[in-house]
């Protein structure tokens, strides 16, 4: 019994000593007493609480302001990433494919829109050298931007699995550099295009008749001035998306213009949406302007179109031009040689 009593006393003494050395649950640790030191497991708050606050984008007071912003994790970035890599990529990809598919379907169903009366052999001026220069300048820059932009947006899903991460790293870097370089040229191009083309693209009363007839693409020819309703709509959509792309592009290329990161994220999302929209539209424009409509491309390459083409597709404009030509011939004022430099 004495032995048992001695052991119990010894155990009680040891337990007392141990308990005496344990910090009290209510006591404040020396480290956290002066200030709330993050990461102190036994401090006033646990690690998980602290990191949750960091993760949720709470702003902290840093010991040295030179260390940077007090927000350690910009939590909205995750939302931006999930939107950019989620709906924007997914629905954007579908939109581009729909644009491509609709164009192919139209080409299969309608075929090339021919000049019904055949070629007259008489040419009338349609686009000046300035109009054509701006068009092809924007077209060239657009192709470079669209190509590099599609790589940036969809490359990780389409190209990466095929060529692997190392090669894709080079491709993505090249696409980003090219995109950033050509972007400002597009801004100049879109503004020049707006200045030169806007007047003839203002909606007119004749456009209503064109809408009622469903345009000339489904068989019957509809009245039109220099541009029909479809072309005018395309023009304004390109201008609108072009301006959105320009504004958001400037923000992304010069991120110091805004101190709010959310604006950059919003700009990135809007840039992606506007880009896929204009690319999907451009597929149809490229088809109709090249092989889709017989004789249309000549206007943008040579500057002139066949008289019958003009009468069938842009009758109101053609009458105007032919009247002007007749008057000039009568007065001997002369007509500028087609395709001549300005």
């Amino acid at each position: 019994m004495r032995l048992v009593g001695c052991i119990l006393l010894l155990a009680a003494a040891l337990a007392g000593a141990l308990v005496a050395n344990l910090p009290s649950p209510l006591a404040v640790s020396p480290a956290t007493a002066a200030d709330h030191v993050p990461g102190e497991a036994l401090g006033t708050e646990s690690d998980s609480d602290l990191w949750r606050r960091v993760r949720q984008g709470e702003s902290f007071t840093l010991s040295d302001p030179r260390l940077g912003a007090g927000v350690l994790v910009q939590s909205e970035g995750e939302e931006w990433r999930s939107i950019r890599n989620g709906p924007v990529s997914w629905y954007g990809g579908i939109l581009v494919l729909v644009g491509l598919g609709a164009t192919v379907l139209f080409a299969l169903l309608r075929g090339q829109v021919k000049i019904e009366g055949g070629r007259s052999g008489r040419r009338i001026p349609r686009f000046t050298m300035a109009e054509r220069s701006i068009h092809w300048f924007v077209a060239a820059v657009f192709i470079l931007l669209a190509g590099s932009g599609l790589i940036i947006l969809f490359g990780r899903y389409v190209i990466l699995p095929v060529i692997g991460p190392t090669a894709f790293g080079a491709v993505a870097s090249a696409a980003m550099q090219g995109h950033n370089l050509f972007g400002p040229l597009f801004i100049f191009g879109i503004l020049a295009m707006l200045a030169v083309y806007a007047v003839d693209n203002i909606f007119q009363a004749a456009d209503a008749k064109w809408i009622i007839k469903g345009g000339s693409l489904f068989g019957a020819h509809a009245p039109s001035w220099k541009y029909n309703f479809g072309e005018k709509t395309y023009f304004w959509l390109v201008v609108f998306t072009g301006l959105v792309l320009s504004a958001t592009g400037i923000l992304m290329e010069f991120p110091t213009l805004t101190e709010t990161l959310q604006y950059l994220q919003l700009a990135n999302i809007l840039h992606g949406i506007a880009a896929v929209l204009v690319i999907a539209l451009a597929v149809g424009h490229i088809y109709l302007g090249s092989i889709g409509v017989e004789g249309a491309l000549e206007g943008m390459t040579a500057g002139t179109v066949d008289e019958n083409w003009a009468r069938e597709h842009h009758d109101l404009w053609a009458e105007d031009v032919l009247r002007e030509i007749a008057e000039r011939e009568k007065t001997g004022a002369g007509i500028r040689a087609p395709g001549a430099a300005e």
Partner: peptide, 23 residues
């Protein structure tokens, strides 16, 4: 450097267009 490169590209595109468009 970036501005100069953009000017060079813009000029080259316009010259190329003139070469194919001017009769």
């Amino acid at each position: 450097f970036i501005v100069a490169a953009q000017a060079a590209f813009a000029g080259l595109i316009l010259l190329w267009f003139r070469r194919i468009a001017d009769p």
